[in-house]
Amino acid sequence: MKTKLPQLNHFPFIIDGGLATELEAQGHNLNHILWSAKLILEDPQAIIDAHLAYLNAGAKCIISASYQASIDGFTSLGLSQGQAIEAIKDSVELARAAVDIFHKQNPTFFKPLVAASVGPYGAYLADGSEYTGKYGLTDHQLKEFHQQRLDILSATSADLLACETIPSQQEAKVLNQLISVQDKPAWLCFSCKNEQHISDGSLLSESVKLLENNPNIIALGINCTAPQYLPALIDSLSTTTKKYIIVYPNSGEHFHSDTKTWHGTADPQECAEAAKAWINAGASIIGGCCRMGPEHIKAISESN
């Protein structure tokens, strides 16, 4: 058995796209240190609506708004530690509320999963370092940061943990140790800068091998990476891991961190065609990340 989650036997297993992408499409300005997580406090209904957009597009799993949520991030805005903890828990409960609404409207469809997002340390910094992994921290400092959120999210109703956009071997090793003692299964996805290397320059194949023996990690893969790199990266994964292979790339557009704007275009049908190639290469869990909206997930779902 690869997993305790029977829903994952429905392949290809389609997950959601970029939560921030849909929130911005709703008209929300996310230029903020907490990014999507600020709406946990300001407009929780908007998060539920965004999750529902992906569920209605065919997603079988939605990822919570906790990617950039942390105790330090919330307390820096004046919240108490207790209020910060509750806000992180609320990210999962908002996703659960969306699933409950969807399932009530679609009772014959199996109940979608909720994955609690665990973003990299660089997401908390909000300075683009989540795409380099160059934090200048010790393993102990990274462990202290991630331990808090993992403990909080593991105690929620989430079905699994989604460790996302991990840029470095160092951070992956720390998360691997922490995940091994959690009660929930997890997936871990790297951000990659080309067809062979994760963002810190380490080989993807070597990075994956470090995680292969962790029974709590049920899937390994790639997210927030340009889609043109995926065929080669999936090929590397298929020869390295026996776990499920998960990929949810960005649209291939370029993000300019100084202006916090995107440049480029991406077509949902082109994305759907590309997803067929990812599945044929060995990926079994498919979705989208930045700039991949419900229309992309609908196209992937309907064509696969």
Rank of each mutant, 00 (worst) to 15 (best):
G201W: 00
H256K: 13
P44K: 04
G221S: 12
N31H: 11
G128A: 04
N250Q: 01
G18P: 09
Y135C: 02
I179T: 01
R291F: 10
A84K: 07
A283H: 00
G293R: 06
R149L: 09
G73P: 04
S199E: 12
H146G: 06
A272K: 01
I285E: 09
L161H: 04
T265L: 09
N304L: 15
S257Y: 15
Q81D: 14
K298D: 08
I101M: 06
F145E: 00
S301N: 11
N176W: 01
A158T: 06
W262V: 04
A219N: 05
E195T: 15
F109W: 14
E86G: 05
F11L: 15
I245K: 03
W278P: 06
L113Y: 06
A266I: 13
G201P: 01
L79K: 12
Y131A: 09
D159V: 00
E22G: 07
T261F: 01
Q182R: 11
T3Y: 06
I152C: 08
S157Y: 07
S80Y: 10
I300V: 13
I152R: 08
S36F: 05
D127K: 08
I198H: 02
S129D: 04
A65F: 03
I285D: 11
Y244G: 10
A283P: 00
F109M: 12
K243C: 08
A50G: 05
E164H: 01
A95P: 00
T241Q: 02
Q147W: 12
L220T: 07
H10Y: 13
A115D: 10
L230H: 12
D200P: 00
K2H: 13
H140L: 14
H296R: 09
P6R: 10
Y67F: 07
A37V: 05
A226R: 14
H146K: 05
S205N: 13
V247W: 06
